[in-house]
Amino acid sequence: MSIFNKVFASIGIGSAQVDTRLESDTVVPGEEVRGIVHVKGGRTEQKVDEIYLSLHTTYIKESDDKKYTATATIDRFRLNDPFTIQPSETKEIPFSFILPIDVPVSIGRTKIWVATGLDIKNAVDPSDKDSLKVLPNSLMDSIFSAAEDLGFRLRNADCEQAPHGLRRNYPFVQEFEFVPISGSFRGKLDELEMVFFPVSENEVEIFMQVDRKARGLGGFLAEAFEMDESNVVLTVTRNDVPNLSQKLHAAISRYC
């Protein structure tokens, strides 16, 4: 094989190519993601040490009073043992993995994607990127519906750097920001923020921040010193779904 082909392959020209094809790009946390990785050989024989899939999202990070976007790896999966791909040869590697139950959902500006990489020694590693649309599971969907029943509208959703007290598996949390547009909390609250920490598919811990509306001089002073915010931790299971609106109302009402 021409030495020039080997040199070109080492810098990514004429080297192996990778293409991942997902069976479905719409998934729910806890579900199985399936697909096939297609590998096509380049101009020269190459040894592939590893094929890996990694799950990613972005989040807002703050440093020196400046905000910027960072990328976080949610999980990583190794697919194969080392193999050699011949020039123009095609290989198909099927895969499946379980989407973590605490993966962010595709709401607001939150993006989730699967990156595929080939680890080829002494060469530029080929890669591929495929977007996933992650939908809320039925329990989370019920919580959103309960908030809507109470007159709240989802205003914003984003992944942000997690304070140390809220940091779990990742350096970020996905925050959902609601505003009361009707119902008993309109005029009493400025906003309601929620962060979900799934325990299982049937149970979730909700961290809520209730931001009371400033009323009078005392209210404005409290708002100035951020004393108008109360933190609430609420555990919700599937058994709560029939009375979820009432449970949510009771938890928020204690701080209004």
Rank of each mutant, 00 (worst) to 15 (best):
Y68K: 12
A70N: 07
T58Q: 11
H56V: 00
I60D: 01
D81Y: 15
I60A: 11
Y59W: 10
R76H: 08
Q86Y: 14
I60H: 02
T73A: 14
E50W: 03
F83L: 10
I74E: 05
R78T: 11
T57H: 05
L53W: 01
I51R: 04
T69G: 06
A70Y: 09
H56P: 00
I51V: 07
A70W: 07
T84S: 14
K66F: 10
D64P: 00
T84P: 06
L79Y: 12
A72F: 06
F83D: 05
K61P: 01
Q86P: 07
T58H: 06
D65T: 03
N80I: 07
D65P: 00
I51W: 00
D64A: 11
R76Y: 08
T73I: 08
K67R: 14
S54N: 15
I51D: 00
R76F: 06
H56S: 02
S63Q: 10
T69L: 09
S54T: 13
T73W: 06
F77M: 07
Y52Q: 04
T69V: 15
D75N: 14
D81A: 13
Y59C: 04
L55H: 02
K61N: 03
F83G: 04
S63E: 12
I85V: 14
I51C: 10
I51F: 04
E50M: 01
I60V: 13
D64M: 09
T71K: 07
L79A: 10
H56K: 10
Y68P: 00
F77D: 03
T71F: 05
Q86F: 09
K66T: 09
T58G: 00
E62L: 00
E62W: 05
F83R: 07
D65C: 09
Y68M: 07
N80T: 14
P82V: 02
K61Y: 07
T69Y: 08
E62R: 01
F83Q: 08
K66E: 13
K66M: 08
Y52C: 02
Q86E: 14
D65Y: 09
E62C: 02
D75S: 14
D81H: 14
N80K: 05
Y59A: 03
Y59I: 00
I51E: 04
L53I: 06
S54H: 11
T84N: 11
F83E: 06
D65S: 12
D64Y: 09
K66Q: 09
L79G: 11
I60T: 07
Y68H: 15
F83T: 08
F77R: 06
T71P: 03
Q86H: 13
R78W: 06
D64N: 13
K66I: 08
Y52T: 00
T73P: 10
T71D: 03
I60Q: 05
F77N: 04
D64H: 12
S63A: 12
D81G: 10
I51H: 01
D75G: 09
S63Y: 14
D75H: 11
